[in-house]
Design a protein around this nucleic acid. Structure first.
Lengths: 187, 187
DNA sequence: TAGGTCTTAGTACCAAGTCATAAATAGGGT
DNA sequence: ACCCTATTTATGACTTGGTACTAAGACCTA
């Protein structure tokens, strides 16, 4: 492989690092057939930090992100809650929630926000979703700040009927009805 | 702060590292009032790798996890697809998908698997979920291997009616009906 | 041929470690 | 008091994956 032009190489460098950020300058140098120093110069010019910094920031943001959709009981941020009655949460649509091609947020994020809010307002030690009826009214885009309002409509035994509506600005963009079952003792 | 007993210190060390893995030996030494060497010895005894290795492995697993629910077009693994007709995907329930307290998988993971599969089988450059009707039949636990089958039931204009059923072993655990809208030109 | 950009080489230095070895200290038991 | 052992600390040499800086070639162009 012959050494390539600078601009081409910069592109190649960026590409290689996006699909494998765990790459030392030495490996990059070998792959692009230039010296390690050239890679370092390129990195400085392109504002790309060294391996360790890359990895560290990945670990940081990943930790934050995972916390957002994974370990948290509520996806989004819980603003207000009246157990057994109603609750409000917000969620801001970050760039990684949207499909690149269309710029529209993946549907399951709104589902997750609504569903976790519905579960949060149940006045029981544990609860499970039994049924969900969901309507996506308007596409949602990056940067939009969604507000979800949940309300218990009816309760029969250990079954709760809950409506959740999500608004963006004043516009309703999503609506869901959940039937949630509270678990008293068993699994 | 007086230096504490060895066993106590080991506990403290573990604790400190779980809620802040980005911690050098030097910081730990200061916090626990012992020398850096003691911390290193402790780490060796407890089998805890050095800071850089910790961060690296965090970044790795986080990348994998995020890829699972975030950047992939299909949550789970696409096994087979006939565009416009049907598709099959699998997903294994990892420990981080379940609620610690109950050991039951969070509902939105199954929703995500079903929803993304439904979208994947649409024969169009882009598609959006309009309506979802979801039924959770049985609780799902860690380690279970879910198989989702999607089928287009009816198509009217740019609206697709899709059924998705998720099975664990031979048992049906989840069922969903989606109405998906394909986008021809604009958003 | 001189001047510019690009690339490479080489040096000194750093952080956060590793490994191995040695010395200091503490806490008993007898 | 004295010995023994466990534990803790110190020390030095080496490693990775860099930064920062300087200097030297290479190559093109006017």
């Amino acid at each position: 492989m012959k050494p390539m032009l600078k601009i081409k190489r910069h592109e190649a460098l960026r590409e290689r690092l996006t699909d494998n950020p765990f790459c030392t300058d030495e490996q990059l140098a070998r792959e692009l057939s230039v010296s390690v120093q050239t890679i370092r110069l390129d990195r400085v010019r392109l504002g790309i930090p060294e391996l360790r910094e890359r990895v560290k920031s990945m670990a940081h943001t990943a930790q934050r992100k995972l916390r957002a959709i994974d370990s948290a009981d509520v996806v989004g941020e819980l603003l207000d809650i009246e157990l057994g009655l109603r609750g409000i949460s917000t969620m801001t649509v970050t760039p990684d929630m949207v499909i690149d091609r269309t710029g529209i947020a993946r549907g399951y994020y709104m589902f997750a926000q609504a569903n976790t809010l519905a579960l949060a307002i149940i006045d029981a030690p544990a609860a499970l979703t039994g049924v969900a009826n969901v309507k996506y009214i308007k596409p949602i885009h990056k940067g939009e700040r969604l507000i979800a309002k949940a309300q218990v409509i009816r309760q029969r035994g250990n079954k709760y009927f809950i409506w959740v509506k999500i608004r963006n600005e004043q516009e309703e963009v999503f609506r869901a009805k959940f039937i949630v079952v509270s678990l008293i003792g068993g699994e």
